[in-house]
Design a protein around this nucleic acid. Structure first.
Length: 380
RNA sequence: GAGAUCGUAGCUCAGUCGGUUAGAGCGUCAGUUUGUGGCACUGAAGGCCGGGGGUUCGAGACCCCUCGGUCUCC
Protein backbone atom coordinates (compact mmCIF):
# COMPACT_ATOMS: atom_id res chain seq x y z
CA UNK A 1 0.00 0.00 0.00
CA UNK A 2 1.43 3.36 -1.04
CA UNK A 3 1.51 6.18 1.44
CA UNK A 4 1.02 9.86 1.38
CA UNK A 5 4.17 11.81 2.24
CA UNK A 6 4.78 14.52 4.83
CA UNK A 7 7.83 16.73 4.50
CA UNK A 8 8.78 19.36 7.02
CA UNK A 9 10.38 22.46 5.53
CA UNK A 10 10.57 24.21 8.90
CA UNK A 11 10.66 22.33 12.19
CA UNK A 12 9.89 23.46 15.72
CA UNK A 13 12.31 25.91 17.29
CA UNK A 14 13.10 27.01 20.83
CA UNK A 15 10.40 29.69 20.74
CA UNK A 16 7.57 27.82 19.01
CA UNK A 17 6.51 24.32 18.15
CA UNK A 18 4.89 25.61 14.98
CA UNK A 19 6.07 23.79 11.85
CA UNK A 20 5.71 24.34 8.13
CA UNK A 21 5.40 21.34 5.90
CA UNK A 22 3.77 19.74 2.94
CA UNK A 23 1.55 16.68 2.57
CA UNK A 24 1.74 14.95 -0.79
CA UNK A 25 -1.35 13.09 -1.94
CA UNK A 26 -2.37 11.63 -5.28
CA UNK A 27 -4.75 14.57 -5.65
CA UNK A 28 -2.12 17.21 -4.99
CA UNK A 29 0.03 18.98 -2.44
CA UNK A 30 -1.28 20.33 0.84
CA UNK A 31 0.92 22.99 2.45
CA UNK A 32 0.76 22.93 6.24
CA UNK A 33 -0.44 24.35 8.48
CA UNK A 34 -3.75 24.06 6.65
CA UNK A 35 -7.42 24.73 7.24
CA UNK A 36 -9.87 22.30 5.62
CA UNK A 37 -13.37 23.59 4.78
CA UNK A 38 -16.16 21.26 5.86
CA UNK A 39 -18.35 19.83 3.10
CA UNK A 40 -20.44 17.36 5.04
CA UNK A 41 -22.72 16.01 2.32
CA UNK A 42 -20.41 16.64 -0.62
CA UNK A 43 -21.04 20.37 -0.55
CA UNK A 44 -19.29 23.17 1.27
CA UNK A 45 -22.56 24.89 2.09
CA UNK A 46 -23.39 27.88 -0.15
CA UNK A 47 -20.08 27.64 -2.02
CA UNK A 48 -19.39 26.18 -5.47
CA UNK A 49 -16.39 24.05 -6.31
CA UNK A 50 -15.21 26.78 -8.69
CA UNK A 51 -15.21 29.24 -5.82
CA UNK A 52 -13.31 26.78 -3.65
CA UNK A 53 -10.64 26.62 -6.34
CA UNK A 54 -10.45 30.32 -7.24
CA UNK A 55 -11.64 32.70 -4.49
CA UNK A 56 -10.88 30.49 -1.50
CA UNK A 57 -8.02 28.37 -2.85
CA UNK A 58 -8.93 25.46 -0.61
CA UNK A 59 -6.32 22.70 -0.77
CA UNK A 60 -8.41 19.93 0.78
CA UNK A 61 -12.01 19.63 1.98
CA UNK A 62 -13.94 17.33 4.30
CA UNK A 63 -16.79 14.96 3.68
CA UNK A 64 -18.77 13.04 6.27
CA UNK A 65 -19.19 9.27 6.24
CA UNK A 66 -22.45 9.25 8.20
CA UNK A 67 -24.15 11.81 6.00
CA UNK A 68 -22.85 10.57 2.64
CA UNK A 69 -23.73 6.99 3.51
CA UNK A 70 -27.34 8.01 4.17
CA UNK A 71 -27.46 10.36 1.16
CA UNK A 72 -26.79 9.91 -1.69
CA UNK A 73 -25.78 6.40 -0.54
CA UNK A 74 -23.05 4.02 -1.55
CA UNK A 75 -24.58 2.85 -4.84
CA UNK A 76 -24.63 6.34 -6.25
CA UNK A 77 -21.15 7.17 -5.00
CA UNK A 78 -19.69 3.95 -6.37
CA UNK A 79 -21.36 4.37 -9.76
CA UNK A 80 -20.12 7.97 -9.87
CA UNK A 81 -16.57 6.68 -9.38
CA UNK A 82 -16.20 8.23 -5.95
CA UNK A 83 -16.92 11.58 -4.36
CA UNK A 84 -14.22 13.48 -6.27
CA UNK A 85 -15.86 12.75 -9.61
CA UNK A 86 -19.37 12.98 -8.23
CA UNK A 87 -18.95 16.52 -6.94
CA UNK A 88 -16.29 17.72 -9.35
CA UNK A 89 -13.60 18.35 -6.77
CA UNK A 90 -10.20 17.12 -7.87
CA UNK A 91 -8.06 18.10 -4.92
CA UNK A 92 -7.78 15.93 -1.79
CA UNK A 93 -10.73 14.90 0.35
CA UNK A 94 -10.69 13.80 3.99
CA UNK A 95 -13.73 12.01 5.37
CA UNK A 96 -14.74 12.08 8.99
CA UNK A 97 -15.80 8.63 10.11
CA UNK A 98 -19.14 9.44 11.70
CA UNK A 99 -17.71 9.07 15.19
CA UNK A 100 -18.69 12.62 15.96
CA UNK A 101 -22.24 12.06 14.73
CA UNK A 102 -22.48 9.20 17.21
CA UNK A 103 -21.79 11.88 19.82
CA UNK A 104 -23.92 14.69 18.35
CA UNK A 105 -26.90 12.47 17.49
CA UNK A 106 -26.74 10.83 20.90
CA UNK A 107 -30.52 10.59 21.24
CA UNK A 108 -30.82 7.72 18.81
CA UNK A 109 -27.77 5.49 19.10
CA UNK A 110 -26.57 2.43 20.95
CA UNK A 111 -22.86 1.76 21.38
CA UNK A 112 -21.60 -1.81 21.78
CA UNK A 113 -18.26 -3.55 21.35
CA UNK A 114 -19.28 -4.47 17.85
CA UNK A 115 -20.06 -0.88 16.80
CA UNK A 116 -22.86 1.66 16.85
CA UNK A 117 -26.49 0.99 16.07
CA UNK A 118 -28.16 4.25 15.13
CA UNK A 119 -31.31 5.57 13.54
CA UNK A 120 -31.19 7.75 10.47
CA UNK A 121 -32.20 11.35 11.12
CA UNK A 122 -33.73 11.34 7.63
CA UNK A 123 -36.14 8.41 7.70
CA UNK A 124 -35.62 6.73 11.08
CA UNK A 125 -34.20 3.56 9.50
CA UNK A 126 -31.74 1.55 11.61
CA UNK A 127 -28.10 1.06 10.61
CA UNK A 128 -25.07 -0.60 12.20
CA UNK A 129 -21.69 1.10 11.88
CA UNK A 130 -18.78 -1.15 12.73
CA UNK A 131 -15.13 -0.15 12.29
CA UNK A 132 -14.93 -2.50 9.30
CA UNK A 133 -18.07 -1.10 7.72
CA UNK A 134 -16.93 2.50 8.21
CA UNK A 135 -13.59 1.72 6.51
CA UNK A 136 -15.40 0.11 3.58
CA UNK A 137 -17.69 3.13 3.26
CA UNK A 138 -14.80 5.60 3.26
CA UNK A 139 -13.05 3.52 0.60
CA UNK A 140 -16.17 3.75 -1.55
CA UNK A 141 -16.53 7.49 -0.94
CA UNK A 142 -12.97 7.64 -2.16
CA UNK A 143 -11.36 9.72 0.59
CA UNK A 144 -7.65 10.43 0.33
CA UNK A 145 -7.52 10.55 4.10
CA UNK A 146 -9.72 8.13 6.05
CA UNK A 147 -10.47 8.80 9.70
CA UNK A 148 -10.62 5.96 12.20
CA UNK A 149 -13.99 5.13 13.71
CA UNK A 150 -13.93 6.50 17.25
CA UNK A 151 -16.22 7.38 20.08
CA UNK A 152 -16.16 11.06 21.02
CA UNK A 153 -17.20 11.33 24.69
CA UNK A 154 -18.89 14.55 25.80
CA UNK A 155 -17.43 17.12 28.17
CA UNK A 156 -17.47 16.63 31.04
CA UNK A 157 -17.11 12.84 31.28
CA UNK A 158 -16.32 10.77 34.34
CA UNK A 159 -12.82 9.29 34.44
CA UNK A 160 -14.04 5.71 34.22
CA UNK A 161 -16.30 6.50 31.27
CA UNK A 162 -13.53 8.37 29.43
CA UNK A 163 -11.17 5.48 30.09
CA UNK A 164 -13.61 2.83 28.93
CA UNK A 165 -14.51 4.86 25.87
CA UNK A 166 -10.85 5.42 24.99
CA UNK A 167 -10.07 1.71 25.20
CA UNK A 168 -13.05 0.97 22.97
CA UNK A 169 -11.73 3.53 20.46
CA UNK A 170 -8.33 1.80 20.61
CA UNK A 171 -9.82 -1.65 19.96
CA UNK A 172 -11.86 -0.18 17.12
CA UNK A 173 -8.65 1.35 15.73
CA UNK A 174 -7.04 -2.10 15.53
CA UNK A 175 -10.03 -3.30 13.53
CA UNK A 176 -9.84 -0.23 11.25
CA UNK A 177 -6.16 -0.89 10.57
CA UNK A 178 -6.77 -4.57 9.83
CA UNK A 179 -9.65 -3.83 7.50
CA UNK A 180 -7.68 -1.32 5.50
CA UNK A 181 -4.77 -3.73 5.20
CA UNK A 182 -7.13 -6.39 3.87
CA UNK A 183 -8.75 -4.14 1.28
CA UNK A 184 -7.23 -2.38 -1.74
CA UNK A 185 -7.41 1.30 -2.63
CA UNK A 186 -10.76 1.62 -4.36
CA UNK A 187 -10.05 3.93 -7.28
CA UNK A 188 -6.32 3.56 -7.94
CA UNK A 189 -5.07 6.35 -5.74
CA UNK A 190 -3.74 6.17 -2.20
CA UNK A 191 -6.17 6.10 0.72
CA UNK A 192 -4.54 6.45 4.12
CA UNK A 193 -5.79 6.16 7.69
CA UNK A 194 -5.48 8.77 10.44
CA UNK A 195 -6.09 7.33 13.93
CA UNK A 196 -7.69 9.55 16.55
CA UNK A 197 -6.50 10.28 20.08
CA UNK A 198 -9.20 10.31 22.75
CA UNK A 199 -9.04 10.20 26.57
CA UNK A 200 -11.31 13.04 27.61
CA UNK A 201 -9.77 15.70 29.81
CA UNK A 202 -7.52 13.36 31.81
CA UNK A 203 -3.78 13.74 31.30
CA UNK A 204 -2.82 10.14 31.91
CA UNK A 205 -5.52 8.90 29.56
CA UNK A 206 -4.53 11.36 26.84
CA UNK A 207 -0.90 10.34 27.20
CA UNK A 208 -1.78 6.66 27.03
CA UNK A 209 -3.97 7.27 24.00
CA UNK A 210 -1.26 9.24 22.20
CA UNK A 211 1.25 6.47 22.79
CA UNK A 212 -1.16 3.82 21.57
CA UNK A 213 -2.08 5.84 18.49
CA UNK A 214 1.59 6.60 17.75
CA UNK A 215 2.45 2.90 17.95
CA UNK A 216 0.29 2.29 14.88
CA UNK A 217 2.82 4.27 12.84
CA UNK A 218 0.11 5.85 10.71
CA UNK A 219 0.97 8.51 8.12
CA UNK A 220 -0.83 11.15 10.20
CA UNK A 221 -2.53 11.44 13.56
CA UNK A 222 -5.60 13.24 14.79
CA UNK A 223 -6.66 14.63 18.14
CA UNK A 224 -10.36 14.20 18.82
CA UNK A 225 -12.68 14.91 21.72
CA UNK A 226 -11.57 18.52 22.20
CA UNK A 227 -13.54 21.72 21.54
CA UNK A 228 -16.64 19.94 22.77
CA UNK A 229 -17.49 22.51 25.43
CA UNK A 230 -14.46 22.49 27.74
CA UNK A 231 -12.84 25.81 28.78
CA UNK A 232 -10.53 27.16 26.10
CA UNK A 233 -7.41 27.00 28.27
CA UNK A 234 -8.12 23.34 28.88
CA UNK A 235 -8.36 22.79 25.13
CA UNK A 236 -4.92 24.41 24.69
CA UNK A 237 -3.49 22.43 27.58
CA UNK A 238 -4.56 19.10 26.13
CA UNK A 239 -3.55 20.06 22.62
CA UNK A 240 -0.08 20.87 23.90
CA UNK A 241 0.08 17.59 25.79
CA UNK A 242 -0.91 15.58 22.70
CA UNK A 243 1.54 17.43 20.45
CA UNK A 244 4.35 16.54 22.84
CA UNK A 245 3.42 12.87 22.69
CA UNK A 246 2.64 12.42 18.99
CA UNK A 247 5.41 11.79 16.43
CA UNK A 248 7.23 14.86 15.12
CA UNK A 249 7.52 13.57 11.57
CA UNK A 250 3.78 13.02 11.03
CA UNK A 251 1.09 15.62 10.46
CA UNK A 252 -1.09 16.38 13.48
CA UNK A 253 -4.75 17.12 12.92
CA UNK A 254 -6.81 18.84 15.61
CA UNK A 255 -10.41 17.98 14.83
CA UNK A 256 -13.12 20.62 14.93
CA UNK A 257 -11.04 23.68 15.86
CA UNK A 258 -11.87 26.52 15.76
CA UNK A 259 -11.82 30.31 15.90
CA UNK A 260 -9.00 32.09 14.01
CA UNK A 261 -7.19 32.78 17.29
CA UNK A 262 -7.67 29.17 18.42
CA UNK A 263 -6.02 28.06 15.19
CA UNK A 264 -3.03 30.38 15.60
CA UNK A 265 -2.48 29.27 19.19
CA UNK A 266 -2.72 25.61 18.21
CA UNK A 267 -0.32 26.07 15.29
CA UNK A 268 2.04 27.46 17.91
CA UNK A 269 1.55 24.27 19.92
CA UNK A 270 2.44 22.06 16.93
CA UNK A 271 -0.81 21.38 15.07
CA UNK A 272 -0.69 21.10 11.26
CA UNK A 273 -4.29 20.52 10.19
CA UNK A 274 -7.64 22.00 11.21
CA UNK A 275 -11.27 21.78 10.21
CA UNK A 276 -14.25 23.66 11.57
CA UNK A 277 -17.78 24.58 10.59
CA UNK A 278 -17.33 28.02 12.11
CA UNK A 279 -16.42 30.03 8.99
CA UNK A 280 -19.40 28.61 7.10
CA UNK A 281 -22.02 28.17 9.83
CA UNK A 282 -21.27 31.43 11.61
CA UNK A 283 -20.91 33.14 8.27
CA UNK A 284 -24.42 32.06 7.32
CA UNK A 285 -25.59 33.65 10.56
CA UNK A 286 -23.91 36.97 9.79
CA UNK A 287 -20.61 36.64 11.66
CA UNK A 288 -17.62 37.73 9.60
CA UNK A 289 -14.01 37.06 10.52
CA UNK A 290 -11.75 39.78 9.10
CA UNK A 291 -8.11 40.80 9.27
CA UNK A 292 -9.08 43.56 11.71
CA UNK A 293 -11.57 41.71 13.92
CA UNK A 294 -15.02 40.17 14.15
CA UNK A 295 -18.06 41.77 12.54
CA UNK A 296 -21.75 41.01 13.10
CA UNK A 297 -22.78 42.22 9.69
CA UNK A 298 -26.46 42.36 10.67
CA UNK A 299 -25.79 45.19 13.12
CA UNK A 300 -27.24 48.50 12.07
CA UNK A 301 -23.91 50.31 12.26
CA UNK A 302 -22.88 48.69 8.97
CA UNK A 303 -25.95 49.91 7.08
CA UNK A 304 -24.08 52.82 5.47
CA UNK A 305 -20.53 51.51 5.59
CA UNK A 306 -19.65 51.26 1.91
CA UNK A 307 -16.08 50.10 2.44
CA UNK A 308 -15.09 46.58 1.28
CA UNK A 309 -15.70 43.60 3.55
CA UNK A 310 -11.96 43.23 4.11
CA UNK A 311 -9.31 45.08 2.17
CA UNK A 312 -6.62 43.08 3.93
CA UNK A 313 -7.50 39.94 1.96
CA UNK A 314 -6.30 39.13 -1.56
CA UNK A 315 -9.53 37.54 -2.80
CA UNK A 316 -11.96 39.41 -5.00
CA UNK A 317 -15.18 38.86 -3.04
CA UNK A 318 -13.80 40.47 0.13
CA UNK A 319 -12.58 43.49 -1.85
CA UNK A 320 -15.49 43.88 -4.25
CA UNK A 321 -18.60 43.88 -2.02
CA UNK A 322 -19.25 46.45 0.69
CA UNK A 323 -20.32 45.86 4.28
CA UNK A 324 -23.48 47.89 3.71
CA UNK A 325 -24.42 45.74 0.72
CA UNK A 326 -23.83 42.46 2.53
CA UNK A 327 -25.84 43.73 5.51
CA UNK A 328 -28.66 44.58 3.14
CA UNK A 329 -28.52 41.04 1.71
CA UNK A 330 -28.72 39.53 5.18
CA UNK A 331 -31.56 41.77 6.32
CA UNK A 332 -33.41 40.96 3.08
CA UNK A 333 -32.83 37.25 3.61
CA UNK A 334 -31.16 36.93 0.22
CA UNK A 335 -29.39 33.69 -0.69
CA UNK A 336 -26.42 35.68 -1.97
CA UNK A 337 -25.76 36.81 1.62
CA UNK A 338 -24.98 33.22 2.67
CA UNK A 339 -22.76 32.72 -0.32
CA UNK A 340 -20.73 35.91 0.07
CA UNK A 341 -20.30 35.49 3.83
CA UNK A 342 -19.16 31.88 3.40
CA UNK A 343 -16.68 32.74 0.65
CA UNK A 344 -15.32 35.65 2.62
CA UNK A 345 -14.86 33.67 5.85
CA UNK A 346 -13.28 30.67 4.14
CA UNK A 347 -10.97 32.97 2.19
CA UNK A 348 -9.97 34.55 5.47
CA UNK A 349 -9.25 31.18 7.10
CA UNK A 350 -7.13 30.04 4.15
CA UNK A 351 -5.32 33.39 4.12
CA UNK A 352 -4.66 33.01 7.84
CA UNK A 353 -2.93 29.63 7.58
CA UNK A 354 -1.00 30.77 4.50
CA UNK A 355 0.29 33.81 6.40
CA UNK A 356 1.09 31.63 9.38
CA UNK A 357 3.16 29.36 7.16
CA UNK A 358 5.12 32.31 5.74
CA UNK A 359 5.90 33.60 9.21
CA UNK A 360 6.97 30.14 10.39
CA UNK A 361 9.37 29.85 7.45
CA UNK A 362 10.64 33.40 8.05
CA UNK A 363 11.13 32.74 11.76
CA UNK A 364 8.74 35.55 12.73
CA UNK A 365 5.77 33.45 13.75
CA UNK A 366 5.52 34.09 17.48
CA UNK A 367 5.49 37.89 17.42
CA UNK A 368 3.12 37.91 14.45
CA UNK A 369 0.84 35.36 16.13
CA UNK A 370 0.73 37.30 19.40
CA UNK A 371 -0.27 40.48 17.60
CA UNK A 372 -2.86 38.71 15.44
CA UNK A 373 -4.51 36.86 18.33
CA UNK A 374 -5.33 40.19 19.95
CA UNK A 375 -6.40 41.91 16.77
CA UNK A 376 -8.52 39.12 15.28
CA UNK A 377 -10.82 38.76 18.26
CA UNK A 378 -11.64 42.45 18.52
CA UNK A 379 -15.34 43.14 18.10
CA UNK A 380 -15.89 45.75 15.43
C1' G B 1 -76.76 63.74 5.30
C1' A B 2 -78.42 58.73 7.52
C1' G B 3 -77.16 53.86 9.09
C1' A B 4 -73.64 49.94 10.10
C1' U B 5 -68.85 48.72 11.60
C1' C B 6 -63.87 49.23 13.27
C1' G B 7 -59.91 52.22 16.10
C1' U B 8 -54.89 47.84 21.08
C1' A B 9 -46.67 47.83 19.85
C1' G B 10 -43.52 50.32 13.65
C1' C B 11 -47.14 46.67 10.68
C1' U B 12 -51.11 42.74 10.85
C1' C B 13 -54.00 41.27 14.75
C1' A B 14 -55.52 38.30 19.75
C1' G B 15 -57.52 39.85 24.31
C1' U B 16 -62.88 34.78 27.47
C1' C B 17 -68.37 36.65 31.97
C1' G B 18 -65.59 43.40 33.63
C1' G B 19 -60.61 40.80 37.59
C1' U B 20 -52.84 40.30 38.84
C1' U B 21 -47.71 43.84 35.76
C1' A B 22 -52.36 44.20 28.27
C1' G B 23 -50.20 39.52 24.56
C1' A B 24 -48.72 37.00 19.59
C1' G B 25 -46.62 36.94 14.66
C1' C B 26 -43.74 39.92 11.57
C1' G B 27 -40.34 44.06 11.79
C1' U B 28 -36.37 46.65 14.81
C1' C B 29 -32.05 46.07 18.10
C1' A B 30 -28.43 42.88 20.29
C1' G B 31 -26.23 38.13 21.62
C1' U B 32 -24.96 32.72 20.68
C1' U B 33 -22.71 29.22 17.24
C1' U B 34 -15.82 24.89 17.40
C1' G B 35 -14.65 16.51 13.54
C1' U B 36 -22.59 20.86 10.26
C1' G B 37 -29.68 17.22 11.61
C1' G B 38 -28.85 24.85 11.35
C1' C B 39 -30.81 31.00 5.73
C1' A B 40 -30.81 28.39 13.02
C1' C B 41 -31.31 29.59 18.16
C1' U B 42 -31.66 33.05 22.56
C1' G B 43 -32.84 37.64 24.53
C1' A B 44 -34.22 42.90 24.66
C1' A B 45 -36.55 47.35 23.42
C1' G B 46 -41.13 49.00 21.90
C1' G B 47 -48.29 50.70 24.54
C1' C B 48 -52.08 57.55 27.46
C1' C B 49 -55.67 50.22 24.48
C1' G B 50 -57.94 57.25 19.24
C1' G B 51 -59.58 61.43 22.89
C1' G B 52 -62.92 63.07 26.92
C1' G B 53 -66.57 61.99 30.52
C1' G B 54 -69.49 58.27 33.25
C1' U B 55 -70.93 53.34 35.77
C1' U B 56 -68.07 50.05 39.11
C1' C B 57 -64.15 47.96 44.66
C1' G B 58 -62.01 47.34 39.66
C1' A B 59 -62.80 49.30 32.45
C1' G B 60 -58.93 47.60 26.61
C1' A B 61 -63.96 45.49 27.43
C1' C B 62 -70.17 48.38 29.66
C1' C B 63 -72.83 53.57 28.86
C1' C B 64 -72.63 58.79 26.77
C1' C B 65 -70.10 62.49 23.88
C1' U B 66 -66.36 63.36 20.40
C1' C B 67 -62.43 62.54 16.54
C1' G B 68 -60.75 59.32 12.61
C1' G B 69 -61.08 55.01 9.07
C1' U B 70 -64.10 51.59 6.10
C1' C B 71 -68.71 49.97 3.93
C1' U B 72 -73.92 50.62 2.54
C1' C B 73 -77.96 53.76 1.45
C1' C B 74 -79.95 58.70 0.15
Amino acid sequence: MASLQFNLTQSATETTKARAGSITTDHGEIPTPIFMPVGTVGSVKAVTQQQLYSDINAKIILGNTYHLYLRPGLEVLEQAGGLHKFMGWHRPILTDSGGYQVFSLAASRKITEEGVMFQSHIDGSRHLFTPERVMDIQRIIGADIIMAFDECPPYPSEYLYAQKSMHLTHRWLDRCVSRLQETPDKYGYTQNLFPIVQGGTYKDLRKESCQYIASKNAVGNAIGGLSVGEPIDMMYEFTALCCDELPVAKPRYLMGVGTPWNILECIHLGIDMFDCVMPTRNGRNGMLFTTSGVINIRNKKWSTDFTPLDEGLPNEVSNYYSKAYLRHLFVSNEILALQLASIHNLSFYLWLVTEARKHIVDGTFVSWKNEMVVRLQQRL
